[in-house]
Design a protein around this nucleic acid. Structure first.
Lengths: 224, 224
DNA sequence: AAAGCGCATTTTGCATGCAAAACTTGTTTG
DNA sequence: CAAACAAGTTTTGCATGCAAAATGCGCTTT
């Protein structure tokens, strides 16, 4: 139990709750018990409830009037819809990044790319995912558009739980690596139009693959 | 003063606060006084503070630790960044809508379009804006992607304050109307690729025009 | 034995209370 | 005269208390 900074308890609680939900510690659909979490975090109900309201506006929990909060569940459709929007946002980020990114940043991206290739060679999927995420994130940052970055982050948060559970078909991994190479090439050429198309396709393909292997809880609804 | 539904006070307060900010009743950068708003809404500080946290996560207010809340200010860059993302989202909405929209919905869109032309002929700019917004909103709804709709709505909220203040140069209006006609045509043809490009251009042009005429408060920062 | 009903317990939602931080203002000091 | 300081006031942040709604459970009724 880390002692909590008293000047912004609610922010701390939001962070911890987010972590608990994203890490799957709080199962999707599970009812959130205020008292239980209060004891767990060592705070009173006021900051916890403030945090829950924020999480609800982020879409991580669902508030049922007079009936408490539940961890939001993701249907297959939710994931697909979210991913479609993210694909569009990442395409935009690539486009904007082409106009702003420095040679040094591209060099760093290339380095990350090779590290990713290394993990691919080792068949270390989790390490690959982490590098993959860092690369996409770095392109996003290079877009220089804070609204874009924040919007993407908000969506990514909601589906992170589901993002890496899907078991991908054989050959997917090699294909993804090839796509990444083309993306990096387009970025090096500062070809905004090309990178937008490539990023969009790269992620749309992921949607297709996930759609085939997603088996989720039914609905985000009341669940009597 | 409408009596407030006691079962979800915080939600009511969020609505009212949002309205007050979006309508400009609470000026950008203005400090938000809890006690004052409590009296105004006839609620205690608890639901008000919950509402403020939500508004902060929506980006309508900025929370300063131990120093209260201020109405978020929009820099020119904020507006441009937001609009770029919205342009991308609307382009996606048009693309998705092409695959789902019914003939009846297209007929209704065409009707709205003609109503908009009528307001254009009358030079009734506010009425034109309302119809313009209804048309874009209807295309968004036709996308059938709730995540896309919600994300767009969240961004639209933040810049609604600034959206219609810019005084546009001469000839802009006629140009916008022509663009709308081409958008509607593409939708009728169900040409997703075309409508995506058209919507994106339509909104990117608006960004350009707004950038020329925006004169705002300086920064979202502390403002001593 | 299954369905319906009523009471006790739990949980939620909001109001209030209290300590700490920040702002004000009048005064002092170099 | 300007800058710095200090006490009083206000404001913020969190904990707690209380009423209403929801939930659980044993009982009755058929």
């Amino acid at each position: 139990m880390t002692p909590i900074d008293r000047s912004s308890l609610h922010a701390e609680v939001v962070s911890r709750l987010r972590a608990a939900i994203v890490d799957g510690e709080l199962a999707p659909g599970a009812r959130v018990n205020e008292r239980e979490l209060c004891e767990r975090f060592g705070v009173s109900r006021t900051p916890l409830r403030e945090a829950l309201k924020v999480m609800a506006s982020e879409g991580l929990v669902v508030l049922l009037p007079n009936r408490g909060a539940r961890v939001a569940t993701l249907t297959r459709a939710d994931i697909e819809n979210t991913f479609k929007v993210m694909a569009c946002l990442e395409a935009l980020s690539g486009e904007l990044a082409c106009a702003r990114i420095t040679d040094e940043e591209i060099a760093e991206l290339r380095a990350l790319h090779y590290e990713m290739l290394a993990q691919h060679a080792r068949r270390d999927l989790p390490a690959y995912y982490r590098l993959n995420e860092r690369i996409h994130h770095m392109i996003l940052m290079a877009s220089g558009n804070p609204v874009l970055i924040a919007t993407h982050a908000g969506l990514a948060l909601r589906i992170r739980r589901a993002r890496y559970v899907a078991d991908m078909p054989h050959g997917w991994w090699d294909q993804a690596v090839r796509e990444h190479e083309r993306i990096l090439d387009a970025l090096t050429r500062r070809d905004g139009a090309a990178i937008a198309v490539l990023l969009r396709q790269h992620l749309e393909r992921k949607i297709d693959l996930m759609a085939r292997s997603a088996d989720d809880v039914p609905e985000t609804s009341t669940a009597a």
